[in-house]
Write a protein that binds this DNA or RNA. Structure first.
Lengths: 222, 222
DNA sequence: TTTGAAATTTAGGGCTGACTAAATCTAAAT
DNA sequence: ATTTAGATTTAGTCAGCCCTAAATTTCAAA
């Protein structure tokens, strides 16, 4: 039996893994806001169940089975986020927490009805890919806005969705997936990012810029 | 902290109580499919929390606080059922189980959005009253179809929603809230109920008829 | 009034998933 | 090669909610 807690761990591990690297106990503990011993305990259980591989003191990796479960949960989560925004009229800062609770309890039919109503979408309101029913995901890794060189134009692709306050802030500035942003400068020194968005000029902190993922269009346009 | 399990117990007690009568441990245990000792344990906890009053060996009653919680859960449940049917396109036999899981995790805003989308309805797909935000409920108690005297016409008002198979059966026969049913006879002896519904004639078992609640219109019409 | 069946509670345990404190392992720096 | 800081695991608890078996209470029938 896979419990809600197990689903949460598998999802966290899925989101933390980059390529073939093992995911550490501490990283999972931080992501989930639990203690390291709690993670060790769950790791033992998930390993026994064949959902992860564990090398003592080295970290864990999802097995194919574990990856399948994680993607199903993530599909629920991201479909829910989009459904809440598009169909129910939630603002995008509220949907992460709501989806975190709902993702574990909705039926496959509920998932299907949402997907139908939304026209089988592939990205959620924050620009994250929605895994397909068969597990296919187009996981792209983008640059962060903080890394973009001054003078460049960049299209916003993704925004981290775990901080409601930041999401409201970004929404005000129209820094949302699809928006075109011009990075004017980092000033005075690695300082606030000077941006031009749709004529308006803004300064945003570097920490915030680290949560915005972009595709650079051109180094110098007009 | 009120847990999901506590909410389930309060809801069960609310549904079992008729008038001022105390609700027995056994009744709760049967309704919830748990053992009697489990109920006793939870009763102790809910009593400590001031959500129910308990007299040893006599049964329990909801306090005002307990009633408030129960009605909020029930409002969630019945709004969800209607939302799933009307907005998402579920069939009415599936929505009870789905709502049983969702009712504990949706936010107040989710509840509000559903209510808005549905035009602030007062009854769910099975004809049960949806408690208002302020706790107001028009709980009417109807006759069961099994009690209606042959020769009478009756309007279906409510149907028990806990048996999906029965709901599919009733739906086929068009025995749904709002339908007008003529009771032709009970034959041969207290036997299957002989009904006429919209020209068509049907025979339904007495156990099924006990789950259909009606308002008798006239003893003899036409 | 006694007795017995049914209802209820008490006693004792199991499982999950969290915690802190303490022990152990790893890996990097001296 | 040794030290040491940080990461990880082990050990021991606790709370929530379930269970069975046994004890107790209630209530109605004899």
């Amino acid at each position: 039996m896979i419990t809600h807690a197990m689903e949460d761990y598998l999802k966290a591990i899925y989101l933390l893994q980059k390529g073939e690297e093992k995911v550490s106990t501490t990283a999972i503990a931080e992501q989930m806001n639990v203690s390291a011993p709690s993670v060790t305990g769950m790791i033992r259980k998930l390993t026994t169940m064949g959902l992860i591989d564990h090398t003592s003191y080295q970290g864990v990796q999802l097995t194919e089975g574990g990856k399948k479960v994680a993607k199903e949960v993530l599909r629920h989560h991201r479909l829910l986020e989009l459904y809440l925004v598009e169909i129910m009229g939630f603002t995008w800062d509220k949907v992460h927490d709501e989806a975190d609770k709902l993702e574990h309890v909705i039926s496959e039919e509920f998932e299907e009805k949402m997907s139908d109503a939304l026209g089988h979408p592939t990205t959620d309101p924050h620009g994250h890919a929605i895994p397909a029913k068969d597990g296919a995901v187009k996981e792209v890794s983008y640059e962060t806005l903080a890394e973009v060189e001054p003078g460049s134009f960049a299209t916003v692709e993704q925004v981290n969705d775990n901080n409601p306050e930041m999401l409201r802030y970004l929404d005000n500035l129209e820094i949302v997936p699809g928006a075109l942003v011009q990075v004017v400068a980092k000033e005075p020194f690695n300082g606030p990012l000077h941006l031009k968005i749709d004529q308006a000029e803004h300064f945003i902190g570097l920490e915030v810029a680290h949560n915005v993922f972009v595709e650079v269009s051109e180094k110098e346009a007009n």
